[in-house]
């Protein structure tokens, strides 16, 4: 059942991997020219964006350095968001999508417990995202060596694991809402709101006391706060992400088991 889910989504997985790979190759490739004149580019970047936008982009302080550039263009905003969207699309194809289309009907009437159906699709989601993360990690590692970014392997891996856990968390959130409601739109909406607010809280809202305490519910807090590219694997933060994912997966199993399908 896991292989079936992966095979059905092979095209989507391949497409996302190629797209993300091309994006990473291009953006990391540009660093070759930035490196020649870090002061100018850094100043330009600082001048180009107003304060709030700068916060949103993660500060842009040391875009002239290799690791700073890597943090800004890869691990700060765009790539995590792309990963999250990829996870959302895959997760919607697990329960809510097939249920809305009507193809889930035969699957649920197979001699397999409903909980197992959900778990198989969660496992498929985890493996599919792992494949995307693994390929993109190889691309980032290769490209950084090419253009002369010297972030150590361990730190790069730590940051990429964070990317994977973040995507898996949001994917499982989509899966859980989809399993509980059977509606893709509901699942996507919950994900969109949580992701957008969560990201705002840890960036723009960082200095605002009224909202900064909310960072505890933002997955991005656990993703970025430990600064894995600079300080290595933030084990505690990542465990929180993984634990929350497990809770969501369990919620998906329990809610799907209790409700009417395809009504």
């Amino acid at each position: 059942m896991i292989t079936k889910y992966l095979r059905d989504n092979l095209r989507a997985l391949a497409g996302w991997t190629i797209g993300l790979g091309a994006f990473l190759t291009m953006y990391l490739g540009i660093y070759a020219s930035i490196k020649d004149d870090p002061a100018t580019y850094s100043a330009q970047a600082m001048a180009k964006y107003p304060g709030a936008l700068k916060d949103l982009m993660g500060g842009l302080q040391d875009i002239g350095t290799g690791t700073g550039y890597l943090q800004t263009v890869v691990y700060q905003l765009i790539v995590p968001m792309l990963f999250v969207v990829c996870a959302m699309i895959l997760a919607n194809r697990a329960i809510a999508g097939p249920e809305e289309a009507g193809t889930l009907e035969l699957v649920v009437t197979l001699p397999v417990e409903r909980g197992r159906v959900v778990l198989a699709r969660f496992a498929g989601l985890a493996l599919g995202l792992l494949a995307v993360a693994a390929v993109t990690f190889v691309i980032v590692w290769t490209m950084t060596r090419q253009v002369g970014i010297d972030t150590p392997f361990g730190r790069l891996l730590a940051a990429h694991i964070g990317l994977y856990l973040l995507a898996l968390f949001f994917g499982t959130l989509t899966l859980a809402v989809g399993a509980a409601t059977g509606r893709k739109a509901a699942a996507s909406a919950v994900l969109g709101v949580w992701a957008a607010l969560g990201y705002m809280v840890v960036t723009v809202g960082r200095g605002v006391d009224a909202v900064s305490w909310l960072r505890w519910v933002s997955p991005f807090h656990y993703y970025a706060d430990g600064r894995p590219l600079y300080e290595g694997l933030p084990a505690g933060d990542y465990l929180v992400l993984a634990g929350a994912t497990a809770v969501l997966a369990l919620t998906a199993v329990l809610t799907f088991d209790r409700r009417d399908v395809g009504v």
Binding site: D8, A101, G102, T103, E105, L106, T109, L110, P111, V112, E113
Partner: peptide
């Protein structure tokens, strides 16, 4: 779940995709 292996089911609105 086990008894469903002994049942053949044709849904009223069968959807096959992909």
């Amino acid at each position: 779940a086990a008894i469903r292996a002994r049942i053949g089911y044709l849904p009223g609105d069968l959807v096959l995709e992909g």
